[in-house]
Write a protein that binds this DNA or RNA. Structure first.
Lengths: 213, 213
DNA sequence: AGTAGAGCTACCCGAAAGGGTAGAACCAAG
DNA sequence: CTTGGTTCTACCCTTTCGGGTAGCTCTACT
């Protein structure tokens, strides 16, 4: 298509996604591109890590939400082993919490479900060139929750108990703390999430990617 | 690959999915297959309906969960206009309620996110031949909830109010009924869903596809 | 060393939730 | 026409929730 010269060393790409048809779509988007090459695929986080160790791709495309080890975990592990790893998160938007976690772990970019072949290729090139690519949709959602406080580890534990339908008393027993403490955490959770009650808090947490269904 | 004869009239296929890369994967799976042809694509339910009216494809691949008009709604409308429409639901599993709704609207098959190119082609051929294709994973989940009761329209309305963090009093006002009636519905909801409290009921409903996040 | 935040405990109190029980109107299917 | 399901109403009673207030450790950062 373009009159680019044939790079002697194309950008190597690893695709980690549990959806074979989507990987095919990625493969087809990268085929016939002289400056990039899909060198490996993986269907879950663990296989993704192994593939990364084996191929050390220039750019890794990583889906969140996969069976077994999720993309967030795999992203974190890969970035710990190789701080230079360039990883693009490929996902339907799952709330600010997931995106923030990915960014903290060192994600270099995001691609949403509406991504076109052209955008995919441009993002790979940009990330390989050292840029960070954050689509406006993601940036806006992120800005919206910028001032919002994050829940502490303990508060997330309490909220998970709530989502399972446990009473404060039951959660207290499970966490080996007193019911009063659980209630204190609940107050903090409702305040931080701006929720009207515990049910609403669970829904807000789901929307923001703090909890999973 | 196989020694099939070139059909004079290949199976025409319409793909409705808001993920361009996935549509590319579908397109690539159908390319080089002499007996089927992807004749149109659409990115949401409304465009899917229009494309169906225009092309009357032999088989339609329809994603659930799309922006604007969802796949379930589009499926229903298409099947009402054309009871002979053969539609395969292409989705990550979203709970028995969604699958049951799709089946009631006349879906001919299901394809999960793990679908391979080969499975996609085989499903298209089978559905075109008049068969119903339900993957074992879907069938098993369906069987698991076979005896489970479904919520009435009113109960779903109440539960949606609960998910928004409304009290029984507030839900009663919104639905213009008394609080006692709401409480009666809540009792029925908790019983039917086997939930411990309202929060748990919302979680169960989310898992079963009765509610959306 | 001081301070901010997390985590914890404790009390009171009114509001809300959930369980039990009972009955009436309506509509569709047997 | 009768039965069953849905929707609606109403009462009682106990438990749980959520708001307010207060104070305690411990760790991490400045």
């Amino acid at each position: 298509m373009t009159t680019e010269h044939d790079d002697p060393r194309p950008i190597t790409v690893l695709a980690v996604d549990d959806h074979p048809l989507l990987r095919d779509g990625i493969a087809s988007a990268l085929s016939n591109e002289p400056d990039m090459k899909l060198v490996a695929e993986a269907a879950d986080g663990r296989a993704g890590i192994e593939a990364y160790r084996k191929f050390h791709p220039d750019v890794t495309l990583m889906d969140l939400q996969m069976p077994g080890m999720g993309g967030l975990e795999a992203l974190h592990i890969i970035r710990q082993e190789d701080p230079n790893a360039r990883i693009v998160v490929l996902t339907t938007y799952k709330g600010d919490a997931q995106v923030l976690s990915a960014l903290k772990s060192g994600a270099c970019g995001f691609l949403l479900k509406g991504t076109l072949r052209k955008e995919l290729r441009e993002t790979i090139r940009a990330v390989h060139a050292g840029q960070r690519v954050i689509p406006p949709e993601v940036a806006m959602e992120l800005a919206e929750f910028a001032g919002e406080s994050t829940l502490s580890t303990r508060e997330v534990q309490v909220l998970k108990g709530v989502a399972r339908g446990n009473s404060n008393r039951e959660i207290a027993d499970q966490l080996s703390i007193t019911e009063d403490t659980v209630k204190a955490h609940m107050k903090s959770i409702l305040l931080k999430l701006g929720a009207k009650d515990r049910t609403h808090a669970v829904m807000v947490a789901l929307k923001r990617g703090i909890l999973e269904v």
